[in-house]
Simulated scan of single mutants.
Amino acid sequence: MTQSPRFLLTVPTLALAAVLGCSRGDAAALPGASAERPALAVRAERPRERLEGETARATGELRAKLQATVSAKVAGSILRVRAQVGDRVRKGDPIVELDPATIAIQLDQARAARKMALAVRDNARADLARTEQLARADAAAPAVLDKARAGAQQAEASLEQAEAQVRLLEQNLRDLVVRAPFDGVITARPRNVGDYLVTMPPTPVATVVAAEALEVRLAVPEGLVDPLKPGAVLRGRSIPGGAPFEAKVTSVGATVDPQTRAVEVLADVRAAAGASAGALRSGGLAEVDLGGSSAAQGPFVPAQAVVREGARRFVWVAEGGVARRREVQAEAVTPQWTRVRAGVAEGDAVVVEGVAGLTDGARVAVAQ
């Protein structure tokens, strides 16, 4: 009687165990239950040592060779505005005029003071001449002669000082007109009639840009800069618009930017024959052909193979059926190709399609 309940409890337990055992066996028997994830299809290429028929390009900024923010040389209120934003000016053309009233009064006072100093000087000279005549006749003591000479010298100095003051105020009167320092276009004029201008610190009056004298500033990859020399003529175009121009190299930088591995190159810009006026503007972007890139040392990989992660660059390389991430040092040489200076070897299979979604160690199937 005491064993019946224990037997009854055991039967359900055995039944449950049998069911679970069958479930595990069925799961193990299902096809693909423990199979690995399928390989990702990718396309890979080996790096190229030369880019036959390709043209290396660099993108840069057009900028004016001459640009100046002009200010007044003397303090005063603006009386008249002679040039507006967008106006073309010639060197010496007036931009604004300041109120001359105060300086005109000061100039009148200085001229009066000069007349007075001139009279004093003439009187001192005459007094010295009389004293010298008396001294030669032994009718004047040496001390009296010395005093007359000192008085004449002081009078000469006072006159020179008065004349200098007059010249200074005459110059200040001329400086009340703020003029263009060179031929160009007014691109900014932050002050208007009635504004008071100071000289310390100088108050900006207008910005003048020599719109016709442009240069392009290029960041050229260090691997492509050696053939460029001052005097070389390159061809380029504006972005957007495609306005053609010629660029004559004037300067090749002596240092390499450690972040971009590029060298600064400056070139004077001349619009191509037939280009529309105003097609090239300071501040715009431009693309310049650096010439055939076949002479540049590789290896080269397609631009889409290089993945950017902040300032870092890396590629995926297929090795033994798995993807491996390689950090590289790379620089773009054309819109389609990138030069890899370190990180890949000649025989590496660099993934060029199917990069998205790859992880380090993922199985890949390389398409032929």
Rank of each mutant, 00 (worst) to 15 (best):
A75V: 05
G76Y: 03
G76P: 00
G76E: 00
S77I: 14
S77G: 15
S77Q: 14
L79C: 12
R80Y: 13
R80Q: 11
R82M: 15
Q84T: 10
Q84K: 10
G86E: 05
D87C: 04
R88Y: 10
K91Y: 11
K91Q: 15
I95M: 02
I95Q: 04
V96E: 01
L98K: 04
L98F: 05
A101S: 13
A113K: 06
R114S: 10
K115V: 15
K115Y: 07
A117L: 04
A117N: 08
L118E: 15
V120I: 09
R121T: 02
D122R: 09
D122A: 06
N123W: 11
A126N: 12
A126S: 09
D127M: 15
D127E: 15
L128N: 07
E132N: 09
E132G: 08
A135W: 01
R136L: 09
D138R: 12
A139S: 09
P142D: 05
P142I: 04
A143G: 12
D146C: 08
D146Y: 05
D146M: 07
K147N: 11
K147A: 12
A148R: 02
A148Y: 01
A148G: 00
G151A: 04
A152C: 01
A152Y: 01
Q153S: 11
Q153T: 14
Q154D: 12
S158G: 13
L159N: 11
L159W: 13
L159Q: 14
E160D: 13
A162D: 00
Q165N: 14
V166D: 00
R167D: 05
E170T: 00
N172D: 14
N172G: 06
